[in-house]
């Protein structure tokens, strides 16, 4: 991809994180380059969300090193970090009655000083975010009146307004029906392809990760067990080992590669 840096934008080396005595992350290493689309998969409780929160510094502490643009993450002020990384949580929280526009405008926080007002650059960033996510018609709707899919797009729009280089998403298609899943994934792919935005997304939908045309990081019991091209995860029973269940590989001439189905479903 054009504009990619040779050295990784985000580099994690032998990173571990404990909650109490329990090791949630256990020596994870990871490298993400600018413009990558990385899907993080793994069973429940594997440490995926914890990893994302450590990168975003929502959780602090841990052993090992996280480097962003060649600098140790701990050096960044929170505001500076927010101009590099933006984050979309799972989106199940009850939100106050802000309108979508008010919510997206709050995404400009890292670019504003305490007493500064909104500039044309800020307004333009907000408009662009609404446009990229197709949320313009919903700008004046209250967040608490949106459907799950619309709310997810609003979250993404607010994160985009931050104009960060990396977008981290925690299960962006969870709780969505197939149509809205497709819409959200299409938005993410378009952002990655057209704007060069680096995307790191946790997902339980292995097939959407396989079709993302990016890389996959698989985590099991806090350890990274695979990182590489999406298709590579299908070889040598890797998925079976990660999830502890068998998978059927399905092929269709219209698909670029195999898709999978848990055997237990049959």
């Amino acid at each position: 991809m054009e504009g990619r840096m040779n050295h990784p934008l985000l580099e994690i080396t032998d990173f571990s994180f404990l909650i109490g005595a329990k090791k949630i992350l256990n020596g994870i290493s990871l490298a993400v380059r600018e413009g990558d689309f990385l899907s993080i998969i793994g069973p429940n409780g594997a440490g995926k969300t914890t990893l994302l929160k450590c990168i975003m510094r929502i959780l602090t502490g841990g052993h090992g090193e996280i480097r962003l643009a060649g600098r140790n993450l701990e050096i960044f002020s929170q505001k500076e970090l927010a101009s590099w990384l933006s984050y979309v949580p799972q989106g199940v929280e009850i939100l106050p009655a802000f309108t979508v526009l008010e919510f997206v405008r709050m995404g400009r926080y890292p670019h504003l000083s305490p007493f500064s007002t909104f500039t044309q650059t800020d307004e333009a960033a907000v408009e662009r975010s609404l446009s990229l996510t197709g949320m313009e018609p919903f700008a004046h709707r209250y967040l608490n009146t949106l459907s799950g899919g619309e709310r997810q797009q609003a979250y993404i729009a607010a994160a985009l307004a931050q104009e960060a280089k990396v977008l981290l998403l925690d299960e962006p298609t969870a709780f969505l029906d197939p149509r809205h899943q497709v819409e959200v994934l299409a938005t993410l792919k378009r952002l990655n392809r057209e704007t060069g935005l680096t995307i790191i997304a946790i997902t339980h939908d292995i097939n959407s990760a396989l079709l993302s045309d990016g890389e996959i990081l698989a985590i099991k019991e806090g350890k990274d067990v695979y990182q590489g091209p999406a298709g590579g995860i299908l070889s040598a029973d890797k998925l079976e080992n990660i999830y502890g269940t068998g998978f059927l590989k399905l092929q269709d001439s219209r698909l670029p590669q195999f898709l999978v189905l848990p055997e237990g479903l049959l």
Binding site: I58, K79, Y87
Partner: peptide
């Protein structure tokens, strides 16, 4: 009054507030 933006972000939850760059 100097923290009205921060108060807005806090109503969205600590995670979003942190992700937006608030300490």
């Amino acid at each position: 009054a100097c923290l009205v933006r921060e108060l807005n972000l806090l109503t969205l939850g600590d995670e979003i507030a942190t992700a937006r760059g608030m300490h």
